[in-house]
């Protein structure tokens, strides 16, 4: 379980996050939703120690500051949106970096097994010997997600992982996330813009608005007309299709 106590974050004088108290349950897919500028990505990078902030972050009953950096990178992993990928590196080599916290650069048999597993998980077999600077945006994204999978951490943070992906790959990545949460009892926390992916795939939803947490709770309780209107300031229709709540907001 991850607990956040009194998190505050300012950029210069502007409050980005104010007084956040939140606990994120383990073994679930958790979506962070909210309008642009609500502080979703900032919150994600604070929990995953990429950005500093005031307040305390407690991961599995231990303060994040008390973790050794290597130990922490076995506990949590994060993928953000912008990455330098213009170096001569094959897809497999990139994915094998995911094993760095475990074995540094000396990969053993177990590491190689996990790397190959993540490659086939993401259907990257046909690409694994290609250089990453030759890949399309979506292929890069999948290669990076495979690297995160190879890192094999308990908590996985993904900042808009569906960026650059077509519908087919978006769905397959969400299904994959479901699968690893179920089979490997990981916790996945992601920022997602498409409300229907949040509705259909997540167990738990945290909604941010105006630098604070507006709602946090099980997905079915958050996906209601009234609450969505409060979060996004626009009207939604919600239809039940095969047990999934689908939100309609285009018109």
């Amino acid at each position: 379980m991850i607990e956040l106590l009194n998190i505050n974050k300012k950029y210069d004088d502007k409050d980005v996050l104010k007084n956040i108290n939140l606990s994120l349950p383990k073994g679930k897919i958790i979506s962070l939703i909210g309008a642009n500028g609500a502080g979703k990505s900032t919150l994600l990078s604070i929990i995953s120690r990429l950005t500093t902030s005031e307040g305390e972050i407690i991961i599995d009953d231990k303060n994040i500051d008390n973790y050794h950096i290597t130990e922490l990178s076995k506990k949590i992993s994060i993928l953000r949106q912008s990455n330098y990928l213009n170096i001569k590196l094959t897809v497999r080599e990139l994915i094998s970096f995911g094993r760095y916290p475990h074995s540094k650069s000396r990969l053993n048999e177990k590491d190689n097994k996990i790397i190959d597993e993540s490659i086939s998980y993401m259907n990257l077999d046909y690409l694994k010997n290609k250089y990453i600077d030759e890949l399309s945006g979506g292929e890069k994204q999948r290669a990076l997600i495979a690297m995160i999978l190879a890192q094999d951490s308990d908590y996985i943070f993904l900042d808009e992982p569906l960026n650059n992906l077509d519908m087919k790959h978006s769905v397959s990545i969400m299904k994959l996330l479901r699968k690893i949460v179920k089979e490997k009892s990981k916790t996945v926390i992601l920022v997602v813009h498409d409300i229907n992916f949040a509705s259909c795939y997540s167990d738990y939803i945290v909604a941010l608005k105006n630098t604070g947490v507006l709602y946090a709770g099980d997905a079915e309780k958050i996906i209601t007309k009234e609450k969505l209107k409060n979060i996004f300031d626009m009207d939604f229709e919600i239809e039940d299709i095969d047990g999934n709540k689908i939100c309609i907001y285009y018109t």
């Binding site: 995953s48 120690r49 990429l50 950096i69 290597t70 922490l72 990178s73 076995k74 992993s77 994060i78 993928l79 953000r80 912008s82 990455n83 330098y84 990928l85 170096i87 990139l94 970096f97 995911g98 760095y100 916290p101 540094k104 650069s105 995160i148 890192q151």
Partner: peptide, 20 residues
């Protein structure tokens, strides 16, 4: 040297993989 290999990928990925 092996830290540099990863640092070429930027700050976020390096921190993620446990490099200060």
């Amino acid at each position: 040297c092996d830290k540099l290999d990863i640092m070429a990928l930027g700050r976020d990925i390096s921190l993620n993989l446990g490099i200060a």
